[in-house]
Each structure stands twice: as structure tokens, then as C-alpha cells.
Computed example of a mutant assay.
Amino acid sequence: MSRSVSTTAARVVSIALHPFVVFAALAMLAAWRVDPASLPRTALGIGVAIMIVSLFIWQRRRGGHWETVDASRRQERPLLYALALLVAGGYWLWMGGRASATSNGVLAAVAMLCVAGIANRWIKLSLHMASLAFAGVASWPLSPVVAMLAVTLLPLLGWARLKMARHTLPEVLGGVLLGLVAGTGLLVTA
């Protein structure tokens, strides 16, 4: 595979398995499997959240504040973490702020982001890897097939993040570990 083709392939993989996509798919799966009546509300909440974050990212890139849409530089991350926490908290409130499959998942994801935000002082953990690993563990009770697919895709996503030079190997592996721990924490407390 030529360099440009492999870089393009890595970019496609990174976009297809972006944390927004992964978390949206996980929330929709949880709503569908646990509380089908909440599916329209979940979809609307996800759509609004993605729109808010997308507008923010567009503004940061257009204003020259971020090099990439991924907030790939460590110093770009704190604002990304703050926005993600605000959006996740708003989504949790939108869903009723009560214990449910999706709201507990949102709280676990928020805890994961908090740990990544604190760790950012020393290491820029891959949120792509963390979200996919989290989804792999968290989706197991909902759909073992989806869970296995997510876990199977981790090496491909890791390759893509390394190929695009968005992360180092320790950042990729640290992201996987963070996602696995957060997903396991969600299952243990459920």
C-alpha cells in the first residue's frame, strides 16, 4: 500500500471509529435493547450533542486554534475535555438524569474523560482507543456480537492513530487500558 493510500485509509478508519460515532452507536444500542421507547429521545439528544461539538470543533479549526479536528496537541485537549463533559452532562440531564442504561453509560464515559483529562498533564491518551475499548466492554450485555466487533477493530484503529501520527504507542495502549477499565467499571456497578 502506498504512503498516500495508507494515510487515506488510516484517516477513513479514524473518522469511521471516531469517539462521537462510537458513543452515539453505543447509546443507540443501549436505548434499543434496554428501553426502545427512549430511542427517539436518545437519537435527538445525540444529534444535538454532535451538532454542538461539531460547531465548536469547526470554530476552533477555522480560528487557527487547533491543528487538527482531533485536538491532537496536548495543549488543545483541556478545552476539548471541558466541552465533552458539558455535553455529556447535558445529555445525561436530557435523558432524565436518573439511573438508566444510557445515563449510567454517560456517567461512566464522563468518568473516563475526567481521568484522561487529569492524565493529559503527563500523557495524551487516545480517546479514539478509549471509546472503542469502552464500547467493546460496555456493549457485551447488550450484544456480544457488537462487543466482539469493537474489540476486533481495536488493532486497526490503533494502526490508524499511529499511522496518522496522532499518538505514540504508549498513548494508544493507555487509551485502550482506560477504556477497558471504565467499561468494566460500568458493568460492575450496573
Score class of each variant (00 low, 15 high):
residue 150 A to W: 03
residue 115 V to D: 07
residue 18 H to T: 05
residue 133 A to E: 02
residue 164 M to K: 11
residue 104 N to W: 10
residue 190 A to S: 15
residue 91 Y to T: 13
residue 35 D to M: 00
residue 143 S to N: 09
residue 94 W to D: 06
residue 41 R to L: 13
residue 125 L to R: 03
residue 46 I to C: 01
residue 140 W to V: 04
residue 68 T to G: 06
residue 132 L to E: 05
residue 17 L to Y: 01
residue 151 V to M: 14
residue 116 A to L: 03
residue 158 G to N: 00
residue 3 R to F: 13
residue 9 A to W: 06
residue 93 L to W: 11
residue 170 P to T: 08
residue 161 R to T: 00
residue 190 A to L: 15
residue 128 H to T: 03
residue 35 D to V: 06
residue 106 V to R: 02
residue 147 A to C: 04
residue 165 A to P: 09
residue 50 I to G: 03
residue 101 A to L: 01
residue 53 V to L: 15
residue 66 W to F: 09
residue 183 G to V: 02
residue 168 T to G: 13
residue 84 A to C: 11
residue 189 T to I: 14
residue 30 A to Q: 05
residue 74 R to A: 15
residue 151 V to P: 07
residue 118 I to N: 13
residue 37 A to M: 10
residue 67 E to H: 13
residue 123 I to Q: 09
residue 47 G to L: 02
residue 134 F to W: 02
residue 58 W to Y: 15
residue 59 Q to L: 15
residue 71 A to K: 01
residue 75 Q to A: 15
residue 30 A to I: 07
residue 78 P to C: 07
residue 17 L to F: 10
residue 45 G to V: 00
residue 179 G to F: 04
residue 41 R to K: 14
residue 111 A to G: 09
residue 66 W to D: 08
residue 117 G to C: 07
residue 128 H to M: 00
residue 27 A to V: 09
residue 22 V to D: 03
residue 140 W to A: 12
residue 43 A to W: 03
residue 34 V to I: 14
residue 49 A to C: 00
residue 12 V to N: 06
residue 106 V to I: 13
residue 188 V to F: 08
residue 150 A to Q: 06
residue 77 R to E: 01
residue 83 L to K: 11
residue 142 L to S: 12
residue 73 R to V: 11
residue 64 G to R: 01
residue 38 S to I: 04
residue 124 K to A: 10
residue 91 Y to H: 14
residue 79 L to F: 14
residue 107 L to C: 01
residue 38 S to W: 06
residue 96 G to Q: 01
residue 52 I to C: 04
residue 123 I to V: 11
residue 134 F to P: 02
residue 149 L to F: 13
residue 136 G to I: 05
residue 79 L to V: 15
residue 145 V to G: 15
residue 124 K to Q: 10
residue 47 G to C: 04
residue 85 L to A: 08
residue 43 A to S: 05
residue 119 A to D: 07
residue 142 L to R: 07
residue 176 V to G: 12
residue 13 V to S: 03
residue 36 P to D: 04
residue 187 L to I: 05
residue 113 L to F: 14
